[in-house]
Design a binder for these strands. Sequence first.
DNA 1: GTTCTAGAAC
DNA 2: GTTCTAGAAC
Length: 745
Amino acid sequence: MEPIELDRNPNPSEGQEQVEVEKGKPIVVILVGAPGSGKSTFCDDIIRVSTRPWVRICQDTIGNGKAGTRTQCLMSASGALREGKSVFIDRCNIDREQRLDFVRLGGPEVEKHAVVLDLPVQTCISRSVKRTNHEGNLEGEKAAKVVNKMLQKKEYPKLVEGYDRITCCQDEKGVQDAINAYAALGSLDTLPTGYFGPRVLEGKVQLGIERFFKKVVPAQLKGSELNAHESYSLNQVAKEKDSSPLQQGDSCTPSNHARKDSQDHEMGMPTGATALDGVSTLAFPSISTADFQFNLEKASDIIVEKVGDFVNKVDNARLVLVDLSHGSKILSLVRTKAEKKKIDSKKFFTFVGDITRLFTIGGLRCHVIANAANWRLKPGGGGVNAAIFKASGPSLETATKERAVSLDPGKALVVPLPSDSPLFSKEGVTHVIHVLGPNMNPQRPNCLDNDYVEGCKVLREAYSSLFEGFATILSTQRGLVKESDGNSLNSQDQKAKRDGLHEWKKNKKSKGSIKELQHSGSQSNKRNDNQDHTDSRRATRAWSSWAQALYHIAINPEPHEHVLQILDDVVVLNDVYPKAKRHLLVLARAEEGLDCLADVRAQHLQLLKTMHAIGLKWAEKYLNENESLAFRLGYHSVPSMRQLHMHVISQDFDSKHLKNKKHWNSFNSPFFRDSVDVIEEVSKHGKATVKDDDSFLDMELRCNRCQSAHPNIPRLKTHISSCQAPFPANLLENNRLVFASGKEG
DNA sequence: GTTCTAGAAC
DNA sequence: GTTCTAGAAC
């Protein structure tokens, strides 16, 4: 491999004397290679001489010199990137799954590179076996086994995973060239994007892409070397597409032979515009034109109109109309009309393929897909709806159910796809937007009976809702909220979704009985455990000794390291196990027997207001010290500790004490009752709503800002440590969220 | 509420 | 083999 040229001064502009202080993008370099492939040496060689600030994140040593976790690596990398440093991810990263989270680090402001140290297996093994002082303690014979096993899983990185650049090194010279290239990078320098190094084809290469390479970089690929100038990036390949007609006998797509004048992109035919860049993409089916029998001419007019509106407003995002069949009338109508209207073909195009396999078969990366849903938001039926639910696994249904149970025509529902869904892990789909269009089919519910005045109105509305939903996803993902760009609608949607939350899992048997009893509500606030004959269901909850700590403080407050303030009605103290940077408890002193929210009645209204006012004062004090915080004040529906207490908690949830699902959901599900709502409920109805259903604590883990779902606590914590999305609309209402004045969510 | 730990999940 | 959760004990 030849030395790689650097693009110094990426944007030199002659005659411009004044040098703009431009900060180059930090780079994440994901090293890919077995133990013994030389990853650590690679990093060290570069860091030793480089003028660019680099941090090497080594999983073998990240845990205080010992092996740590992927999450630790992610957090550490994320921190370094925030400081503007570039990062080497020094772990094996041998398959796509292992690399997935690292490729997403830092969003579009960070360049993503992979460097593959693809040295002969024997080299890796003999190096690993020989070394006596390896950081990861992988030595001797054990090493040979590990290396062999690991290499069985090897999956070469591909540009479509999200890299700007991949460098593949298969020998020492290749490695040295890559070291030289990176070592020479100053803070403002960039390396050319694309694939560099010998082209490797392997069993796991995506069909579509493999075929593509075969077509334009024929035969010699395997094992041959291309230098930097000869190598192909998909972008370059794509450009050649038009001048290189499809080969006869190409059989990867069943419909190739039917392809004549069609301008549709199709499965197996990724183009530069479709696969490589970080442009967020919404793939959507034509709404209402299949089973709902909406007139195609009218529908295509509306699609082009709405698409045109959207692409004019939004940069760095694109729309793709997808249909399964090649002869699709709606695609050709839309294509013709879009051309006539001169809609930018980079921002909108049509695509023939299966919407659930756009990436794995088509090489088309779509973060968001739309579903032509039914009004019950249920799987089944046929067509796109059945296919999407089937491809998503059960998690889409669960996630959908949590947000709404039905959908009106013209409306859309954004559902973040849980990461355990195959559609997420294999296809890279992060959100599904359910859309319901107007129905013209008398065999289906709510038929409009050929009323196209209403029908067109509803179809327009459906596309508006869909695209606005997409815009909201974009804004939360990028943390750049354009005030006027369709957020209002979605805020309403989100509130509606929240209000519609139901169909939770059944109570857990063991605890249900206690809750039920506790809940049935004592009218008396005075506990009298021995004389409770009036209502057999009324029960006194047995508070364990550990659960009495707050009660003792309330009865007999004493200066103590955790106690901050002692007043007649309340005691303020730091939570002993804070779940966020700031986490206080405002403890009611007033009455014995006022143990929890279920005990609260109208006569406590003044006390509740006092507690709120005191909590607010403390929140404001902390906001003065750190205006980046935001607070919620509220109660747990069913507290673990006796004696009514209100939490005042900052919304960063940055705490080592936040360890499990219950911790998270007790502050981030309807289980948490905002003090403002409690006061309102008590003043109106004489008591507070209590969400005592255990399933709230068992809910999937969702970010309190962008609502994305995460498979476990460590991953959630990694995510929230950097999520800057605005808080959901319902928190911004009614002063539920307390933040520094002049600072929006 | 936390801590501990078995075993599920990866 | 390691990471993570969830249930029991306190």
